[in-house]
Simulated assay, not measured.
Amino acid sequence: MTLSAKRDWLVPASLIMLSAVPVIAGVARTAELTGGAAVTPENARFFASPVPVLVHVVGASLYCLLGAFQFAPVFRRRRPGWHRLAGRVLIPCGLAAALSGLWMALFYPRPPIDHVLVTPMRLVFGTAMFCCIVLGLVAIRRRDIPRHRAWMARGYAIGLGAGTQVLTHLPWMLLVGQPSGIGRAFLMLAGWVINLAAVEWALHRRLTGPARSIQRRVDAPAGVLASQ
């Protein structure tokens, strides 16, 4: 593998690693619900209504893992049909993850370690993820590829928030212990904000990079093709 190819795989590999902890936690939760584990105060809400959490685990896991490959340019160039085929799986998975997350935020009892602010934050970011995916779908139906990419990247960033939240929680856990209350709320918020900031930085860099100077010298349709 050439150095350029390795660089192309750096982003998707990082995204898969970032997804690993929440995906493993989701698999463990699924095994708990389907394997007859004992009901405890911590998991009672999931046993009382298991369908939303199972939908969320499956939808979010596929969305995060499969979506990572959409950020591998070399993979997409070698398999031009991959992006469209994967999108037909990713969009329903992402919408299912967002809607099930909203349902759980609204109807599951709030865990004792969660501050009251966590519920509205989940509602805001869950709604934003749903809207980003829908706007991305609308954009591609209009053949507006730049806007499609931007909205889908934002939706993916929100969906991957649980992975980044592992990183924001880790230093606190090592230094202080299990976060709770307002501290936990801000650590969760930081995960979503970091991801969205990274996406906006990448989108801005793409618009202001060398491709933009080339685009100015071509007509509009050719410019759209050059951005693909």
Score class of each variant (00 low, 15 high):
residue 19 S to M: 07
residue 89 V to A: 14
residue 46 F to K: 00
residue 213 S to W: 10
residue 177 G to F: 02
residue 132 C to W: 02
residue 34 T to V: 08
residue 108 Y to F: 07
residue 27 V to C: 11
residue 66 L to I: 03
residue 22 P to K: 00
residue 66 L to V: 02
residue 53 V to Q: 04
residue 107 F to H: 15
residue 51 V to F: 12
residue 186 F to S: 13
residue 104 M to T: 02
residue 9 W to S: 15
residue 117 L to N: 07
residue 7 R to S: 12
residue 144 D to S: 08
residue 177 G to I: 00
residue 50 P to V: 04
residue 46 F to V: 01
residue 169 H to P: 02
residue 210 P to F: 12
residue 3 L to I: 12
residue 196 L to D: 12
residue 183 G to C: 05
residue 129 M to E: 15
residue 108 Y to K: 00
residue 116 V to S: 14
residue 164 T to K: 06
residue 29 R to Q: 15
residue 179 P to Y: 13
residue 182 I to W: 14
residue 163 G to A: 07
residue 126 G to D: 06
residue 197 A to T: 05
residue 66 L to Q: 10
residue 3 L to K: 06
residue 165 Q to L: 00
residue 108 Y to A: 00
residue 170 L to C: 10
residue 61 S to L: 00
residue 14 S to G: 11
residue 1 M to D: 14
residue 154 R to Y: 03
residue 34 T to F: 11
residue 213 S to Q: 15
residue 147 R to K: 13
residue 110 R to N: 15
residue 168 T to F: 06
residue 214 I to E: 15
residue 204 H to A: 15
residue 124 V to R: 01
residue 176 V to H: 06
residue 122 R to S: 08
residue 72 A to Q: 07
residue 112 P to F: 14
residue 119 T to V: 14
residue 39 V to T: 10
residue 33 L to M: 06
residue 17 M to N: 06
residue 52 P to Q: 08
residue 185 A to F: 09
residue 223 G to P: 09
residue 197 A to P: 02
residue 77 R to Y: 12
residue 86 A to D: 12
residue 171 P to N: 09
residue 140 I to E: 08
residue 104 M to I: 07
residue 132 C to V: 04
residue 58 V to M: 05
residue 43 N to A: 01
residue 60 A to V: 09
residue 130 F to E: 09
residue 135 L to E: 07
residue 36 G to T: 03
residue 150 A to Y: 00
residue 128 A to C: 13
residue 40 T to H: 04
residue 120 P to Y: 11
residue 116 V to Y: 15
residue 224 V to R: 12
residue 216 R to E: 15
residue 65 L to N: 09
residue 129 M to R: 01
residue 159 G to V: 04
residue 55 V to A: 11
residue 225 L to R: 13
residue 114 D to V: 00
residue 150 A to H: 04
residue 226 A to C: 08
residue 41 P to A: 03
residue 93 C to H: 00
residue 110 R to P: 15
residue 120 P to E: 06
residue 77 R to G: 14
residue 188 M to T: 11
residue 215 Q to V: 07
residue 98 A to W: 07
residue 183 G to T: 05
residue 180 S to L: 08
residue 118 V to S: 02
residue 227 S to W: 12
residue 165 Q to A: 01
residue 100 S to F: 01
residue 212 R to W: 15
residue 161 G to D: 11
residue 79 R to L: 14
residue 106 L to H: 09
residue 91 I to L: 11
residue 97 A to I: 00
residue 72 A to P: 06
residue 164 T to V: 04
residue 146 P to S: 08
